[in-house]
């Protein structure tokens, strides 16, 4: 018996140690490396092009150079407005699914999730053909006579917003549906019996009760949207500044690793609040089970 449990103990240790070691080696250590490189200086002639050091110059540049400050602010703005748009579209959808007959819900949910299982890149690409100057949208507008000389959406911030809402809509709908599905609808009937109009009942009963879903959905859209690269790169224009794209260009185009690393650190600092909120909610929802 003693030998058996010792062996069991050893297995248990291995079960803990394997993923733990993997995450320390391939997640924690690399994150520390980014900080180390961000404190170094660019050395274009060396390979790799970095000279290690203890300089805060890169971070100083991020706060004084207009480009970085503008990219930082516009990432936050674009992510926030896109998240709001996704909420305004996703909430009615989740609500409608939660109120259809139970046997129809799995199919409706599956249709929300299916695009997520196809390629993200391809879904962004789909909008390129739609929004281009001679794209399908403009052809429809011209043909229908709604606009003789429609402008081009591709290459503007509008296209970036559209792309984010489209790409992340499933992440908004799923957590919203999860809370709305569990909602006690008799509360709404009670509100109606007490004389509340449907609109009033919605704002005083349904909305507050679905707040956990709203917070989770918004965070699941906002967090990846802030650091988004593919959408601003393919749908946005030269004027669309987003921090993920700045990082990419600094690294691949300018080969300035220390600045790119400093941008990465700043992106993380920007997201610490939302990520902490998200983790706390995850932990709480697991406790509630």
């Amino acid at each position: 018996m003693g030998r058996k449990s010792a062996a069991g103990d050893l297995t248990m240790r291995a079960v803990i140690a394997l993923p733990f070691a993997w995450l320390i080696l391939f997640f924690l250590l690399p994150s520390a490396l980014v900080l180390a490189i961000a404190l170094g200086t660019n050395a274009p002639d060396a390979a790799p092009p970095v000279e290690l050091g203890w300089s805060l110059a890169n971070f100083g540049l991020l706060f004084t150079d207009d480009l970085y400050v503008a990219a930082w602010l516009s990432s936050l703005r674009i992510a926030a407005t896109s998240t709001l748009a996704a909420l305004l579209l996703g909430y009615p959808m989740a609500y409608a699914i939660a109120r259809t007959r139970p046997e129809r819900r799995p199919l409706l949910l599956m249709l929300v999730v299916l695009p997520f299982w196809t390629s993200f890149l391809i879904r962004v690409y789909a909008w390129m053909g739609l929004l281009a100057e001679n794209g399908i949208l403009n052809q429809v507008l011209r043909w229908s006579g709604l606009a003789a000389h429609p402008g081009t959406i591709l290459g503007t911030e509008w296209a970036v917003h559209l792309g984010i809402v489209y790409g992340y809509l499933p992440f908004m709908v799923l957590p919203l549906y999860a809370t709305l599905e569990k909602l006690d609808w008799s509360l709404l009937e009670a509100a109606a019996d007490l004389g509340a109009r449907p609109i009033a009942a919605f704002f005083t009963v349904t909305l507050p009760l679905s707040l956990p879903g709203i917070v989770a959905g918004c965070l699941m859209v906002f967090i990846p949207a802030v650091g988004e690269f593919v959408i601003p790169d393919l749908l946005g224009g030269t004027g669309t500044l987003m921090i993920g794209k700045v990082l990419w260009d600094e690294f691949f185009t300018n080969a300035d690793w220390p600045i790119a690393s400093a941008v990465a650190i700043c992106l993380l600092v920007l997201l610490v609040g939302p990520i902490a909120l998200f983790q706390r909610q995850q932990a709480r929802s697991l406790e509630r089970r």
Binding site: F27, L29, G227, L268, Q279
Partner: peptide, 26 residues
Amino acid sequence: FGSLVIAPMVMPEVVMGISMLLLFVG
């Protein structure tokens, strides 16, 4: 351990990409 398991889900991909590359270069 708990935060390390969840963190890659919320880490921006560009950040994970650059940190992983720095590890392999190192």
